[in-house]
C-alpha cells in the first residue's frame, strides 16, 4: 500500500513527496509518472550502480533492470519504511551487487578488472547532510577506527568484496570479515542508543 509521505518540502521537484507520489502512480501503471521518475532519479541510481558494477555497458544493463523492477514493484514501496529514494537506491544496490557477486566461472574480465585504476572513494563525512537519519549514521561511522570505516564505505559505495578489501588493506580475509561484522554491530548499537 502506498502512502505519499507528508513532507515540509511539499511538492518540490524531486522531493520525497514528489517521488512518493510518482511511485504511487507508477504502481497504477502510469507511464508518464514513470518517465518523470526516471528523469528525476536516473543519475543518482546510475551513480550508485556504476561505482559497484565494472564498465559502462554492464552498468547500463543493470540500470535498465533496476527501472524494469521499479515499474513492476512500485506498489511494494512502503513510506513508513524510509524515503522513496533510499528504497529505490536499495533496489539499485542489490541488483548491482547481484551482478558482481554472481556465482560464475572466472572470466578474463574479472582478472583485467583488477588492473583498473581505483575509482575515487566516496566520503560521506565530507558531504553536506540534510537528513537527520544521515547525520545520526555519520556520527556513528565517525566512532569507527579509520581503517574499519573505510572498509565499510568501500563495501557500501564501491561494492568491494571481502577479498578486494583484503588485498587493498593487506589484511587476511578472515580479519576483514571479522572487522566488517564488528563495525556493523557497533553501528547498530550506536544507532539504537
Amino acid at each position: 500500500m502506498i502512502m505519499a509521505p507528508q513532507s515540509p518540502e511539499g511538492s518540490n521537484p524531486g522531493s520525497a513527496f514528489e517521488l512518493g507520489d510518482l511511485l504511487a502512480r507508477v504502481a497504477n501503471w502510469d507511464r508518464a509518472a514513470f518517465a518523470r521518475l526516471y528523469d528525476l532519479t536516473h543519475a543518482k541510481l546510475y551513480g550508485i550502480v556504476s561505482r559497484i558494477v565494472r564498465g559502462p555497458d554492464a552498468s547500463c544493463d543493470v540500470l535498465q533492470d533496476v527501472y524494469v523492477r521499479l515499474w513492476e514493484r512500485a506498489g511494494d514501496y512502503d513510506a513508513s519504511r524510509g524515503a522513496p529514494l533510499a528504497w529505490m537506491a536499495t533496489i539499485a544496490r542489490n541488483r548491482a551487487l547481484d551482478e558482481v557477486r554472481r556465482v560464475r566461472p572466472i572470466s578474463l574480465e574479472d582478472i583485467s578488472g583488477n588492473f583498473e585504476p581505483a575509482a575515487e572513494e566516496v566520503n560521506p563525512l565530507r558531504a553536506r547532510q540534510n537528513s537527520e537519519e544521515a547525520r545520526a549514521l555519520l556520527r556513528c561511522l565517525e566512532g569507527l577506527d579509520e581503517e574499519k570505516r573505510r572498509m565499510v564505505l568501500l563495501a557500501y559505495y564501491h561494492g568491494e568484496s571481502r577479498e578486494a578489501l583484503s588485498r587493498r588493506f593487506g589484511r587476511p580475509i578472515a580479519t576483514v570479515k571479522t572487522w566488517l561484522r564488528r563495525s556493523l554491530a557497533q553501528l547498530k548499537d550506536c544507532l539504537g542508543s
Binding site: 556504476s50 536499495t90 537528513s131
Partner: peptide, 20 residues
C-alpha cells in the same frame, strides 16, 4: 534501511547513453 542514508552522499553520474 539502517545503511540507506549513505546514498545521500553518493554523487550523481549521468549514464553514457540514453536508456529510457
Amino acid at each position: 534501511h539502517r545503511l540507506s542514508p549513505l546514498v545521500d552522499a553518493a554523487p550523481e553520474v549521468e549514464p553514457p547513453r540514453e536508456l529510457f
